[in-house]
Amino acid sequence: MKKAVCILSGGMDSTLASYIAKNEGYEIIAVHFNYGQRTEKRELKAFRDICKDLNIKEKYEIDIPFFVQIGASALTDKNIDVPVDGIETGVPITYVPFRNGIFLSIATAIAEKENANALYIGVVEEDSSGYPDCTDEFIKSINYTINTGTKNTTNIEIKTPLVHLLKSEIVLKAMQLNVPLELTWSCYKEEEEACGVCDSCRLRLNGFEKANSKDKIPYKVK
Rank of each mutant, 00 (worst) to 15 (best):
M175P: 00
S73R: 00
G149L: 13
Y35F: 14
D13M: 00
A194R: 07
G101I: 13
T160Q: 11
K151R: 09
A194T: 05
L162N: 10
A107D: 03
G86S: 05
C187K: 12
I217M: 10
Q37V: 02
P92R: 15
Y26E: 06
Y19N: 08
S105Y: 09
F67N: 01
V96M: 10
L203E: 05
V163G: 01
C198D: 14
L183M: 15
G11P: 05
E58W: 03
V197P: 00
E27A: 07
L183W: 08
D63W: 11
E112C: 15
D127T: 07
S128M: 00
K41V: 01
F47C: 05
Y35V: 00
A174L: 03
L165R: 08
N55I: 09
R42K: 15
E191C: 09
K2I: 04
P65V: 08
T76R: 08
C134T: 15
R42C: 05
A46N: 08
E114K: 10
A174I: 01
S168K: 07
V221Q: 13
Y188I: 10
I102R: 10
K216M: 13
D81R: 15
E209R: 07
E27C: 08
F138R: 02
N212K: 15
A21Y: 03
R99K: 04
M175V: 12
E24F: 13
D49L: 15
L205N: 14
A17T: 01
N55V: 08
N34E: 08
N117G: 12
Y219V: 10
A30K: 00
L75A: 03
L183N: 14
K52Q: 10
F66C: 00
L205R: 12
L172N: 14
I56E: 04
I80E: 06
Q37T: 05
I93K: 15
E112W: 07
I56N: 04
G122P: 04
L8K: 03
Y144H: 12
G25R: 07
D85Q: 09
K222Q: 14
D77W: 03
S186I: 04
K59P: 00
I80Y: 13
